[in-house]
Amino acid sequence: MNRILRAGAAGLALAAMGSLGACGGGDPGSADASGQKADTIQMAIASAVIGPKEEVATFSVAKEEGFLAEENLTVKTINTDGSVAAVQAVASGSADITPADTSAVLAAREKGVPVVAVGGLVQNWPWRIATAPGSAITSAGDLKGKKIGVISLASGSAPFARSFVEDAGLDPEKDVDLVPVGVGSQALSALEGGKVDALALYTQAYTTIELTGKKFAYLENGARFDGIRSLSYVVREDTLAKKKDAITRFLRASYKGLLFSAVNPEAAMRDGYAVFPAILSGQKADDRIKNDTEILRTWVASATPREGEPASFGSWGAISDQEWGKTADYLKAAGQITKAPDLKAVWNDSLLEDANDFDAAAVIGKAGATTD
């Protein structure tokens, strides 16, 4: 699932080492066809991969489709307990890179942790407010005096719900009640049973429920949410200096994987099963592939341009100063950071030109030619 802006700044001081566990990756020291030893990158994953999400669309595809091999890279992975722990693993040297929430990255930087974002990943705001079809609630203003179901009060859905009603001139502390309802069937039951009047979830969570035949009515997000960034690739400053070339090649392989996933999410999902078999939960791939592909397609939509065909997608990983500003403003309002970040310290886009230097048509052709 998407872990968008769920990390709280308070956990940054906690050691992440106790939460680390091996979950996959290649064999260190492997060589390419020329006999040259492959560079090894250690990637921290913010939560175990038990469903279609970012590691499937990027890492699994890059590994199974040969993009990592093309870059002469071996990637090993470790699990951590959320974005804060993933950033801490990078900061401690336990991992070289992680796709983490900007909330965790900016909060860490504010505390003096020497981490830096080197490439964006999720670029479209995925959180939505939903009601039951036919509900009298059709706008943010209608939520006055209502209960909104959030994943938990510590999740990113809580600050999103507060910001959403603030846009309508409501007081989020007085005019609405936030009720923890989790995700999936638990959240659906809370809405259908009247425990809450609306839900604040991310698009993948809604897609998972809708695939069971249920429907939602969605409220329109305000303009303040356009351009807010979430998952981005993060490294430690000295790791960037020491492994600049390898990190660049890792980004290039990841963005190739993302492009492949945009063209052929079903093939990407099957790559995910191969690398992270726990996703199947003991079931057959053919029994899950249809629904899992739709869930992955929803995630990919959050990480690719809203308009245009894959052949026109470019500038993978770019984040504008305006987007950083909107993201920081949102996080300040949510209480996750206290001041505007120093962009020169927190953002280094020097790798992106080379990370984008690949034959997109070849990747698209490979995805189109893939058969399952």
Score class of each variant (00 low, 15 high):
161 A>K: 03
180 P>M: 05
214 K>I: 02
147 K>S: 13
210 E>L: 14
134 G>V: 03
172 P>M: 14
206 Y>K: 06
170 L>T: 09
180 P>I: 05
165 V>M: 01
191 L>E: 10
221 N>W: 09
191 L>C: 11
163 S>Q: 13
160 F>C: 09
208 T>L: 05
206 Y>S: 07
207 T>V: 15
182 G>P: 01
191 L>W: 12
179 V>L: 05
134 G>F: 02
222 G>M: 10
162 R>F: 02
157 S>G: 12
216 F>Q: 10
205 A>V: 12
142 D>E: 09
141 G>E: 14
179 V>G: 06
196 V>M: 01
212 T>P: 02
202 Y>E: 15
187 A>N: 08
191 L>P: 13
152 S>W: 00
202 Y>G: 14
155 S>V: 07
151 I>S: 00
222 G>W: 11
161 A>L: 03
212 T>I: 07
212 T>A: 10
193 G>H: 12
172 P>A: 15
176 V>P: 05
201 L>S: 08
152 S>D: 03
158 A>C: 04
160 F>M: 08
217 A>E: 15
193 G>D: 14
154 A>F: 01
136 A>K: 14
156 G>I: 03
194 G>W: 01
218 Y>A: 13
173 E>H: 10
159 P>S: 04
144 K>N: 05
203 T>V: 10
212 T>N: 10
144 K>F: 06
210 E>Y: 13
142 D>T: 01
192 E>P: 02
207 T>I: 09
161 A>M: 05
195 K>H: 00
192 E>S: 14
187 A>M: 05
164 F>T: 08
200 A>N: 04
195 K>Q: 14
192 E>D: 14
161 A>S: 09
196 V>H: 02
175 D>G: 07
204 Q>M: 11
220 E>W: 00
204 Q>F: 06
167 D>Q: 14
159 P>A: 03
182 G>I: 02
187 A>L: 05
165 V>G: 03
146 K>A: 02
210 E>N: 13
181 V>D: 11
205 A>W: 09
221 N>T: 08
212 T>F: 04
171 D>K: 11
180 P>F: 04
217 A>H: 15
202 Y>W: 13
184 G>I: 00
146 K>W: 00
172 P>Q: 13
208 T>E: 11
155 S>I: 05
209 I>W: 12
206 Y>G: 03
169 G>D: 13
204 Q>G: 12
197 D>M: 07
143 L>G: 09
207 T>K: 15
180 P>C: 03
161 A>E: 06
165 V>W: 08
196 V>N: 01
148 I>F: 07
158 A>D: 13
219 L>S: 10
136 A>M: 03
221 N>P: 10
166 E>Q: 12
194 G>K: 06
219 L>T: 10
149 G>Y: 01
200 A>T: 01
223 A>F: 08
147 K>E: 12
190 A>N: 02
212 T>L: 04
218 Y>N: 13
144 K>T: 07
169 G>A: 11
150 V>W: 04
184 G>H: 06
185 S>R: 14
206 Y>H: 03
201 L>E: 13
202 Y>K: 15
183 V>H: 02
209 I>L: 15
203 T>M: 06
149 G>F: 00
174 K>L: 13
196 V>Y: 00
177 D>T: 11
219 L>F: 12
135 S>V: 03
211 L>G: 15
188 L>A: 01
216 F>D: 08
